[in-house]
Design a protein around this nucleic acid. Structure first.
Lengths: 137, 137
DNA sequence: TAAAAATAGTTACCTAGGTAACTATAAGGT
DNA sequence: ACCTTATAGTTACCTAGGTAACTATTTTTA
């Protein structure tokens, strides 16, 4: 096994999964990057853009774009914070109404994608990825 | 473990590695996508764009762009095939001259990135990725 | 063999995500 | 208090990769 192959297959796998995600979300009118933000906001309730960036491991500029699109679609609102530099991002009622649909679509996709991979392998893969990622940061 | 987390960590890991690769290649004047093409061409000698797409699992349009950049930089040439639709892509002497530098930089990076991950884990990760990828295609 | 379908590659345009340079606000050091 | 530095977010522009629509060839088929 050459190290190149390991990186190559990881890259391919990631792209394949991203494509599948966008395919499923397309008819629901949102993109994968938007779903990632929505998913976090559902769990955390209200976060600044900085916090979203840190959590999702994304730079500020793409986050600005993703949020602006979500604002335009009415799924998110930006509330000015006490610190006037900050913007607190929250899901709108419209987003909360749509959430179960999005969640179901994504969960079904994930199950389909993982159906051929035994549970123990899933755990193993997840642990290896996380261990490696933590070592790298 | 939620399936979302597995996909999320895979996505993060992939992005992190891509960023590191581009960081290392930047001073050498090429990008990660270009390196992927060069690496394949070094092994296979001459391939059509279609064959490169299939091998790297990439759609035709981005491949066209990557190759056009490589042509402009003088690292690759497009030889018309017997089938006049095809273009056979080959490394130039200039690319072959630079290759060892690129190869060394990438190999060193890979070793650094993998240094904290035990050999057995590397194999395990590689096998899981490939197994899953094959199931999905 | 002429018309239809498939294939290789390109162009135009989209999202995803990165850096650099900028603005506006907040925090610290003197 | 004032000036410097740090931080949150935006804007502009770059690469990576995707789809749709197109051109130019080749292959199939009627």
């Amino acid at each position: 096994m050459h190290s190149h192959d390991l990186f190559h297959s990881l890259h391919q796998l990631s792209r394949h999964l991203t494509n599948k995600l966008n395919e499923v979300l397309k008819p629901m009118g949102i993109y994968g990057s938007q779903w990632a933000v929505i998913y976090v906001l559902k769990k955390k309730d209200s976060l600044t853009q900085k916090e979203l960036c840190d959590y999702l491991f994304v730079e500020a500029p793409p986050m600005t774009r993703t949020i602006q699109r979500l604002v335009k679609q009415g799924y998110v609102r930006q509330v000015p914070g006490q610190d006037k530099r900050e913007k607190h991002i929250q899901l709108t009622d419209e987003a909360l109404k749509q959430y179960p649909n999005w969640e179901q679509a994504v969960t079904e996709l994930n199950q389909t994608l993982l159906s051929q991979l035994p549970k123990t392998s899933q755990e193993e893969l997840f642990n290896l990825q996380n261990y490696w990622l933590n070592q790298l940061l």
